[in-house]
Design a protein around this nucleic acid. Structure first.
Lengths: 165, 165
DNA sequence: GCATAAATATTATGCGCATAACTAATCCTA
DNA sequence: TAGGATTAGTTATGCGCATAATATTTATGC
């Protein structure tokens, strides 16, 4: 691949990261949330109570990040942390009522953001976009032990990447 | 748009950001570079000397970020900063010989990263990927005065977004 | 059963990028 | 030409996420 093309791809990904994150931050700010916290709330809303290592895996960030996120969301009253009964090391994280309400707001906001993001793209492109993005992600994912994952075809929907849950 | 689909898109973008950035960091580390600095080197290699406000515009990050990036790259001996002759406020940034050599290394690395990233995707998808990503970026770009930019078709190649240069 | 390995979570620290507040220089207008 | 607005750059500060090191608990191998 020539440099022009390579740079177009890498640069586009870099810029998309910056802008999408900035836009998300702007939308989440009125709810008192910072970027990243919404992912934790949505994950808890999706799967129910979980321990932090599970959240770390689901969110794709490291345990120390989860520690900080949970601490701040707990301080905001949106989640509750309790020691796991069967494992004294682990702490179970779950949404409070306030957190559930907030998660619902985030869901609406998330739909608006996604719609805004894909504006102007043909429907078929939008349909295969998640698969494409997941393939790209899988190709550069160093966490999941360098497993290539991409077989060429568009990746299936759903939680394709979940392994150890 | 329903939440499932919206979340698939937003989450995929978020994860791609994290992973692509992490992979880039891993590749750049042996060169003594941190993520973001490579973009500055490549921009200087592409367009020659520039003042920081131009770099800020080209890289899509804010002036304070450019201040820090240039300071560190200057400390590393890769760039040189000199006062602009025609404008006492501005400082001209240019590559040193060491910086040019480093930029060449980054270029190779950038090609490898792009190839790795799009592994397994059909060639036609790869071809339209930059345009798709730029459309997404333009849709959520709050810096360029909320101009929608996306007309539906895949966006043209090259420096589509450059305006004030 | 005990020593060793693995897992869970935390603290400390560092980088990238952001915004806010500030200085200094240039531009523009009246 | 004098003065307010704009522009270029910096400093201070904060957040997200990362790695490294640590404590504590659980699992494992002999």
């Amino acid at each position: 691949m020539d440099f022009e093309q390579a740079d177009a791809i890498n640069q586009a990904i870099r810029l998309l990261s910056l802008r999408h994150r900035a836009r998300a931050a702007a939308l989440l700010a009125p709810l008192g949330l910072h970027t990243g916290q919404e992912a934790l709330l949505l994950e808890l809303a999706r799967t129910g109570p979980a321990i932090q290592s599970q959240l770390s895996e689901a969110l794709g960030c490291e345990p120390p990040s989860v520690t900080l996120m949970t601490r701040k969301l707990e301080a905001g009253g949106h989640i509750r942390r309790s020691p796991a009964p069967s494992d004294k090391r682990a702490s179970v994280v779950e949404l409070t009522d306030s957190g559930k309400a907030l998660a619902d707001q985030v869901k609406q906001l998330w739909c608006a953001l996604a719609e805004e993001t894909v504006t102007g793209l043909p429907a078929e492109t939008v349909a295969e976009l998640p698969g494409i993005l997941r393939t790209l992600t899988g190709n550069v994912d160093t966490r999941r032990s360098r497993r290539p994952q991409g077989d060429g075809s568009v990746v299936q929907r759903g939680s394709a990447g979940r392994i150890g849950l």
